[in-house]
Amino acid sequence: MKKVIIICCLLLSIGCKTKNVNGKKMGKSVDATEMSTVDEAQKNKAYELGKRILMTCNDTKFKPFTQSEATDKVIAKSTPENIKKICVKYNLKYGLFKDLEFVEMIPNKTDNTNVYRFKALFEYAKANKELRVTMNTENKASTITTKDWKDEFE
């Protein structure tokens, strides 16, 4: 009986450490107290890049990303026209952007990236948006996306 319990505990602990999301192997989420100094620096960079995009909705001044901040794909998609379209929609629906609140970091073991989840705070209380910034091993933003907020990472 003891062996069965030990085996179940081992399987449970292995199952809790990683999960597959859209075919990618994701590690256990990490909150701010468990992060290393490298992860903390990367989190701060992700915060600054994400905030820069959403602050554009308030003041309409967008400073384009550089090669050292983001990948070519992110730079190509973050044109002033694309950001303006998003901002018009967000300003009408959620009001002015206030700040980002760090929630968790999820390491992606498949491609060695870290997904930083932030809760976007807007003027209207009904605003419930999430900003995800994926940082690669070169410390560059490889994706920046917004989604409707869900407590569980999907």
Rank of each mutant, 00 (worst) to 15 (best):
F118G: 05
N112S: 00
L131V: 05
Q42M: 09
P80G: 15
T71Y: 06
L96N: 14
Y90T: 13
K63T: 14
N44K: 06
E69T: 07
K109V: 00
K126C: 07
N44D: 07
N82F: 05
L54D: 03
V74M: 01
F62T: 07
E130G: 00
T66F: 00
D31F: 09
E69F: 04
I83F: 07
F62C: 11
T37C: 07
A32D: 08
Q67D: 10
T56F: 08
E101G: 07
A70H: 09
K45G: 01
R52L: 11
Q67Y: 13
K98G: 06
V115S: 05
K63H: 07
E81V: 13
A120V: 08
G95A: 12
M105W: 03
Y94F: 14
E69A: 08
A70C: 13
L121P: 00
K119G: 01
T66R: 07
I83V: 12
T56M: 12
P107Y: 01
I83W: 10
S68H: 13
A32E: 02
N114D: 09
T56P: 09
F62P: 04
P64W: 08
T56I: 10
D39E: 12
A41P: 10
K84F: 12
A120E: 03
F122W: 08
L121N: 06
S36E: 08
I86N: 02
M55N: 03
N136R: 06
D31S: 04
